[in-house]
Simulated assay, not measured.
Amino acid sequence: MGVALRDILADYKIPVTAEELTGVAAVDAFNALYQFLSIIRQPDGTPLMDDEGRVTSHLSGIFFRTANLLQQGIRPVFVFDGAPPEMKTNTIQERRNIREESKEKWDKAKREGDLSGAFRYAMSSSALDSHVISSARTLIGLMGLPVVEAPSEGEAQAAYMALKGDVDYVVSQDYDTLLFGTPVLIRNLTISGKRRIHGRQVTIQPERVNLVEVLQNLDITREQLIDIAILTGTDFNPGIRGIGAKTGLKKVKSGDFDAIIRDKLPDFDPDPIRDFFKNPPVTDSYSTQSSPVDRDGLLSFLCEEYGFSPDRVIPVLDKIAKKEKQKTLESWF
């Protein structure tokens, strides 16, 4: 879900090209996997599957999209979520309920021949199970890219890595990453290009959000941005009905945050949420170093185990190998 800060951040989302994003990117892995599972589907919403009925939409997304990023000089580091905090329990259950309800609506739409409705409901039914997560990790490793295991929220770990300077920016669709302190958030990177949305084709372009620019232009601190998020709702609290981002901004800047909480939510203590965003569980036990692509391993994994077409996979591997060779030659000069 993330936080509903779009209305106050719209003016600070700057379109960028791939050429401007050359460097090391910490990718919120769960966020990217949800995107691939949601978007890469057949017209009736059915995900891509192998002959055994195992979902492969996420593998297609990781392999082909990551190969494109590597070609553009962007080196991803995939950060996976760890154990969620107890404060997130209600949100997790709500998301589970939404998925189950969407699955029922998807099945009904398919029976009725409503393809557009079926696809829409199918997108909301996407779930990350153990197969999706483990197979994603395997594929990323075979591509020679680092996997970082966060102790808790992946966005928090990614932001920490950006703050340390170990990565150049964080890739996620959710604005939570800004609350965790990432200096630069890049949205739409893993889904950029032409997409069909609500029955029409649109072009989605990567966009950059710079935290310092946001805070300076809104004339607030990061702590105040967190308070705005708490008023509108986060993954750890439902927020206050009727308060959106713009109203939240006004209330926080006028110093009314505490009074609103006492009046509307007298039994709610915002301090644990504030502290979690400012001091989340993170680890220094990670590496951002890549390794050579395991060409034979990828062919075996994708083509032999999951039934991908060698005619599609091999040309991509050739492009990656060419890029790796080019980088090796450049390192000599």
Results as ranks from 00 to 15, higher is better:
10 A>L: 03
11 D>N: 14
12 Y>F: 15
12 Y>M: 15
13 K>A: 14
13 K>S: 14
13 K>D: 08
13 K>H: 05
15 P>H: 08
17 T>N: 09
18 A>G: 14
19 E>V: 00
22 T>Y: 00
23 G>F: 03
23 G>T: 03
24 V>N: 08
24 V>F: 06
24 V>G: 05
25 A>M: 12
26 A>S: 10
28 D>A: 10
29 A>Y: 02
29 A>T: 05
29 A>D: 02
30 F>T: 02
30 F>Q: 09
32 A>K: 05
33 L>K: 09
33 L>E: 08
36 F>G: 01
37 L>N: 02
38 S>W: 03
38 S>P: 03
38 S>A: 11
39 I>A: 07
39 I>V: 07
40 I>P: 12
42 Q>L: 15
43 P>K: 10
43 P>N: 08
43 P>I: 10
43 P>A: 13
43 P>D: 07
44 D>G: 01
44 D>K: 01
45 G>E: 02
47 P>Y: 06
47 P>C: 08
47 P>G: 05
48 L>F: 08
49 M>F: 02
50 D>S: 01
50 D>K: 03
51 D>H: 01
51 D>G: 04
52 E>C: 00
53 G>A: 06
54 R>H: 08
56 T>I: 13
57 S>L: 10
57 S>D: 05
58 H>I: 05
58 H>K: 06
58 H>Q: 07
59 L>T: 01
59 L>D: 01
60 S>Y: 14
60 S>E: 12
63 F>M: 03
63 F>P: 06
64 F>H: 09
64 F>C: 02
64 F>R: 09
66 T>H: 02
68 N>T: 06
69 L>R: 12
72 Q>I: 02
73 G>N: 14
73 G>Y: 12
76 P>V: 09
78 F>S: 03
80 F>E: 02
80 F>N: 01
81 D>K: 13
81 D>L: 14
81 D>V: 13
82 G>H: 09
84 P>G: 13
84 P>N: 13
85 P>Y: 00
87 M>A: 10
87 M>H: 00
89 T>D: 15
89 T>E: 15
92 I>P: 06
93 Q>R: 15
94 E>L: 11
96 R>P: 13
96 R>I: 14
96 R>K: 13
98 I>D: 12
98 I>P: 06
99 R>L: 03
99 R>H: 02
100 E>T: 12
100 E>M: 13
100 E>W: 02
101 E>H: 11
102 S>Q: 12
104 E>M: 15
104 E>A: 15
104 E>F: 11
105 K>N: 12
